[in-house]
């Protein structure tokens, strides 16, 4: 199912049904998706494989999404990280963007907007 031409995406969210459904929808659109349900396993994935993009929730059971964000970017500064959260307020958004996130989306997310970001269109928000 996974070949080299498909772009790979890591979805990090502890809401499993959300993660699963989003992964299926992105795969229908030609992306290759991996799922992580906590921050540490997400960082482990990132060490093993060079994902094109990461969709990251802020509230995670073990470490905070911002910690995942900063560590992932420390290892790969060019990584495209998109924050998707139900909890983030304005201050969280500013911090994440300063840390290097490409965009900060609030749940529920409109898929076309997400696709545009994954295609490399819009920068931030």
């Amino acid at each position: 199912m996974q070949d080299e031409s498909r772009r790979s995406i890591l979805i990090v969210d502890d809401e499993r049904r959300f993660t699963a459904a989003l992964a299926k929808r992105l795969e229908l659109r030609g992306f290759s998706c991996c799922m992580a349900f906590d921050g540490l396993s997400a960082l482990a994935f990132l060490e093993k494989r060079p994902f094109d993009a990461v969709l990251l929730d802020l509230r995670l059971p073990d470490i905070h999404g911002m910690q995942v964000l900063s560590r992932a970017l420390a290892a790969r500064p060019a990584l495209r990280v998109i924050i998707m959260t139900a909890h983030g307020d304005e201050r969280d958004r500013r911090v994440c963007l300063r840390l290097g996130a490409k965009a900060f989306l609030r749940k529920p997310v409109a898929l076309p907007e997400l696709l545009a970001l994954l295609e490399g269109g819009g920068e931030g928000r």
Partner: peptide, 9 residues
């Protein structure tokens, strides 16, 4: 928002 996000997907 969390359940809404699930419903959405």
């Amino acid at each position: 928002n969390n359940p809404l996000a699930v419903i959405n997907e």
